[in-house]
Design a binder for these strands. Structure first.
Lengths: 130, 130
DNA sequence: ATTTATGCAAATCATTTGCACATAG
DNA sequence: CTATGTGCAAATGATTTGCATAAAT
């Protein structure tokens, strides 16, 4: 299974770069503007291939579609409860996290995801009460 | 919107207690054995109501159905990549985690989820190569 | 040439919803 | 009584898949 360089695959990769954390749908909408013939299935397939190969990171969020990230260095994400905005979180001392997680219930730990939730600056201001 | 005590609601709560981290489907299968008239929609609805009210915790996992937990004290979860088993993780010093997470990209942080992934003891033994 | 990728439409999976009826308070 | 809950079946949303064709190597 040799991966090939198709136009669609590049377009998908570039869309994720440009859009910062898009969903598959968002990436497709973006691509579809200039390249109306690209199908949604192809976008999904290429997001899968690229995430599998490590070229992209898949961000799975509770309640909603997956997002995709072209930043590969380890970092976490936060989503605004109100507007859905997804942002990067560079956590200081996050190495500690990784250390703490070495043993868990006898499992062989291979990785972890951290998803924060809260209010983005704009929504926090707009809705002071929450 | 006063919550009422229905037989179905109790059955759903008890199923989650008994089964430890079941999905909605698993809870329904369990309940359905002794109470064949209970519908899946009702199980979903009550899981939602109970999670909303804080009586249960919803565990959202990447790639797959949500699980539900009757243990309310703060802890995290790990899922086996091979068999799907979900287990509790009591993380030492997890308070540090909470401290670290106070500020993130200017967001007002309200909570966080940590999902670990790896191999459960049984699968690790069965597939030494991974 | 041969294998991988694409586009389309249909299928799948988890979950939600509209509606008429049942039941808890 | 009256609001909330239930069962059913149909709808939804995200993602995947079968299949014939197209394109990359």
């Amino acid at each position: 299974m040799e991966a090939r360089n198709t136009i669609q695959r590049s377009l998908v990769y570039e869309a994720v770069q440009q859009l910062c954390h898009p969903t598959a749908e968002e990436a497709w909408t973006f691509i579809h503007q200039k390249h109306p013939s690209v199908s949604k299935a192809t976008v999904y397939r290429n997001l899968g291939v690229l995430a599998q190969s490590g070229a992209l990171r898949k961000i799975s969020l509770p309640d909603g579609a997956d997002h995709f990230d072209s930043t590969l260095s380890e970092h976490y994400h936060i989503r605004c409860r109100l507007c859905g905005l997804v942002a990067d979180v560079d956590m200081p001392h996050q190495e500690r996290m990784t250390d703490l997680i070495k043993d868990a219930a006898g499992f062989l730990v291979e990785g972890h995801d951290i998803i924060l939730k809260g209010l983005c600056p704009a929504c926090a201001q707009r809705c002071p009460a929450g």
